[in-house]
Amino acid sequence: MIELKSVTRRFGDAVAVDDIDLTVETGEVCVLVGSSGCGKSTTLRMINRLLPRTSGEILVDGEDINKADPEALRLNMGYAIQSTGLFPHWTVARNIGVVPDLLKWPAGKRDERVDELLILLGLDPETDAIKYPHQLSGGQAQRVGVARALAGDPNILLMDEPFGALDAITRENLQQEMLRIQRQLNKTTVFVTHDIDEALKLATRIAVMDKGKIIQHDTPEEILRRPASAFVENLIGKGDRGLKLLALRSVGELMERYPQPRKREPNADGLKEADSLRFALSVMVWKNASRLPVNSEAGEEVGTVTREQLLQGGA
């Protein structure tokens, strides 16, 4: 658990972070969202003491972080940034192994961990491990960056716009991977982004920041339904708020489930349980269908979802 208590950070006369309180529960993904210069990165960098705070208290699991040795503190906090900051003179494997090395893990355990992470992030332990960072695409480099952050098996993950510089498709893919990895690992995560859609997608709770203050700290659904101010309303975009709400829930939550799974008709289209309601609606509009079958991961038809259900119960 990370607790910020009336934390302030000044740069000269300018106040970057203004007396904020924030609690991030264990295992939760807290996304700090806001426009550039709102203090979200500053807040993040105070948590691993890359920046000292001007006043206030930051506690990790109840301990003031200023009492710990800064290096020991950071070794237990994975850190991934937008520009990746991969070490250009080291191979991918050595980059990922940097924290295990700093923690003085035996070489065998480190190498196992590196392979495990390469696979987890969808990289090839054979061919990608021996590459140098300049041989990677932007998306691959960012995957390595995330793998490196996870390598020491830290309790806390700090991510500063890790997908900000990627193209839309790669970003979407990596967000999916993040969700999958988070379900597997359950790290307490603080994630900084300026992209509200990314925030809505990844967050357990979102903290909207503006001019160094936290305007609203709530679940994605509450932020969409009850924005605390005109600023938040603007940020989420009034126009497609309904669609964004649909995007938060999965087909599996809304569908009418059959008592017994049925065998799928060959070639029949269908949704997956994990698909979002927004996706379901889009498919229905495209196909002009009023009802679509839903398939489980195993490929059996487990229920149906209708257009009326979507419109009435979706948002």
């Binding site: 290096e71 950071r74 850190y79 990746t84 070490f87 003179h89 924290v99």
Partner: peptide, 27 residues
Amino acid sequence: INPAVLESAKGMGMSSVQVLLKVELPL
């Protein structure tokens, strides 16, 4: 040296001596 590299070296938990010997001088 790319400031992001130094920032991440520090953020990973390297001490200043380690940053110098493992990252700065080789680069």
